[in-house]
């Protein structure tokens, strides 16, 4: 793209206002690289445009603060750009269990979003070159095709599943679960056309938060189900699932 494309230059205002199509945005960004005066103009107009947004500030709900901050801090950061686009990998501080942090943060964020029962594409948040998987769980969470879905648990709480079709794996998380008597436990199942397969027992803390549980061998048509079973274990689910997630939702 040449820097003296007169037609393109008229897009300055629309570009700053994000009032261009994706193609135009890309073309204009390329144009900017070779047009110092455009960059200067855009810089100034951006300050003005951003005032349109900051003037509308509203106070976020206080309960969003902690989970949002933690979700961010559990995420990898982009390395600084060196010499025109060549970037180096950068890793978060060692010594901290990254997967745990990531999951806790993801769970916290979903806990907030779960009220609306919305599925969220997690891929864009987690899929990043500088996010190095520290474990299998983390690998699922940061899979390119990772999709996150949450649903209320009928007996209380919210369940979250992050699944990667490509990896045939999912991570199950939950919080706010009703405590069970010693004789009962929460069991996970993969439920598909070929029947139910056990997918693990949840470890639930006193807070009602379940430890993130890795589910492997998941096929595209499987749903993840959670049932309450005798603590001695069951070969097949013996009660109605308290939550089922997937696959169409995944």
């Amino acid at each position: 793209m040449t820097s003296n494309d007169p037609d393109l230059h008229t897009l300055v205002g629309a570009y700053v206002l994000d009032a261009v199509s994706a193609e135009e945005r890309a073309r204009f960004s390329a144009h900017l690289a070779g047009c110092a005066s455009c960059r200067a103009e855009i810089g100034e107009l951006r300050e003005a445009a951003s005032s349109l947004g900051t003037a509308e500030a509203v106070r976020p709900r206080p309960e969003l603060r902690e989970p949002t901050i933690r979700a961010a801090q559990a995420t990898g950061q982009l390395a600084p750009v060196l010499n025109g686009g060549q970037s180096t990998r950068r890793h978060r501080a060692a010594g901290r269990p990254r997967a745990i942090r990531t999951l806790a943060a993801a769970a916290a964020v979903i806990a907030v979003a779960a009220g609306a029962g919305v599925g969220t594409h997690y891929a864009d948040m987690a899929d990043h070159p500088s996010t190095r998987p520290a474990s299998v769980i983390d690998a699922v969470l940061s899979a390119r095709d990772a999709v996150m879905r949450s649903a209320p648990v009928t007996t209380g709480g919210v369940a979250i599943v992050v699944a990667s079709r490509h990896k045939h794996m999912a991570v199950f998380m939950a919080h706010g679960l009703r405590p069970l008597p010693r004789t009962r436990s929460y069991e996970l199942w993969l439920m598909g056309p070929r029947g139910e397969r056990p997918a693990g027992r949840l470890v639930v803390r006193a807070s009602g938060m379940a430890r993130p549980t890795l589910i492997s061998g998941m096929s595209a048509s499987d749903m993840v189900g959670l049932t309450v079973e005798p603590a001695s274990g069951s070969l097949k689910p013996t009660s109605v699932p308290v939550v089922m997630i997937g696959p169409q939702s995944l």
């Binding site: 960059r39 810089g43 951006r46 300050e47 976020p60 709900r61 969003l64 989970p67 949002t68 901050i69 979700a71 961010a72 801090q73 995420t75 990898g76 950061q77 982009l78 390395a79 600084p80 750009v81 964020v109 907030v112 979003a113 609306a116 919305v118 969220t120 864009d124 948040m125 990043h128």
Partner: peptide, 23 residues
């Protein structure tokens, strides 16, 4: 609220791309 949370995460991730000389 979802967008806000996503953007706050973007800020963390992309902070190295912020250049005070530009704006």
């Amino acid at each position: 609220e979802e967008v806000m949370q996503e953007v706050m995460l973007e800020i963390w991730r992309r902070a190295s791309r912020f250049d005070p000389a530009v704006g």
